[in-house]
Design a protein around this nucleic acid. Structure first.
Lengths: 151, 151
DNA sequence: GGTGAAAATTGGGAATT
DNA sequence: AATTCCCAATTTTCACC
């Protein structure tokens, strides 16, 4: 019941991770399948939860966000739960994880400018001790997750 | 020459960030435009670099990766450049940023198991001092970047 | 795998600025 | 004149059986 991921599905997943708007027909040509056959495989991988969604990447600078930052929080006693509720309403937060270690939370945020960053951090001090790292550049962005072999 | 992002484009960007496979026809119905008009706006936003790409999200667990981690590196003198070259070939690394602060690099990695994590970290010790946080859960994943108003 | 429905694309033309 | 949109026709893709 384990591996529905054969070489063909790996190629399909690779293509969709690189360009999720590629048509099933185009993918089919590459893997030697008809469009309906590709569609069926994709549907099955969606149902199995292997494929979780399809997202457009938007440039933060072009949207007016001049800064990105990584912010960690070491939550005060009893303040983690309230933070987890609050953070869902914060539009600046693009990604947020619970993590192990000295800090409890790490998140990636987009900010209009330095003043916005300051205001954002001020919102957080009630929940815990924060640490901020400005993102200088991207080295790797959303690299595709491959199966055990990098086909 | 600045803002090509009116309310209609904001809605288009929102929809594509939520589901990048949504058809132009479907989006058009929502914003009151014909499919070619939507296609034209999307094409223009691609050309302007506002839309950077379309990616499928894949579940790491279903792909056999039992662990995710955040790893930071405080690079040794002269070891940052070699690391930046090396990291591009590391399939475990999904995201990697240059950052300000005590650490130079932060990255998100997927790992098959604990042994794999150990081997991965061992590869890094030659480049700098590492710190590892296991990801326990997702609070927010790839939230859409909105324009200045959250339309 | 094959067939009808839906969507994408292309070209041309009209309206707004 | 430039931009943006619509319309219509062709091609491609999708979805059901």
């Amino acid at each position: 019941m384990e591996n529905k991921i054969d070489d063909i599905n790996r190629k399909i997943l690779r293509r969709l991770q690189e360009n999720s708007r590629e048509s099933f027909a185009s993918i089919g040509r590459l893997v030697g399948l008809t469009p309906p056959a590709v569609a069926e495989r994709v549907k099955k991988m969606e149902d199995l939860g292997i494929l979780e969604g399809y997202k457009a990447r938007v440039n933060h600078l072009k949207m007016g966000y001049q800064l990105r930052a990584i912010v960690t929080i070491k939550a005060f006693m009893g303040k983690l739960k309230p933070f987890l509720e609050k953070v869902r309403s914060m539009q600046e937060v693009i990604n947020c994880y619970r993590i192990t270690g000295n800090e409890n939370i790490i998140m990636e945020v987009v900010l209009l400018d330095q003043l916005h960053l300051e205001q954002f951090i001020d919102q957080l001090i009630q929940y815990g001790e924060t640490r901020t790292h400005i993102i200088l550049s991207d080295i790797i962005s959303d690299a595709p997750i491959m199966g055990n072999k990098g086909i």
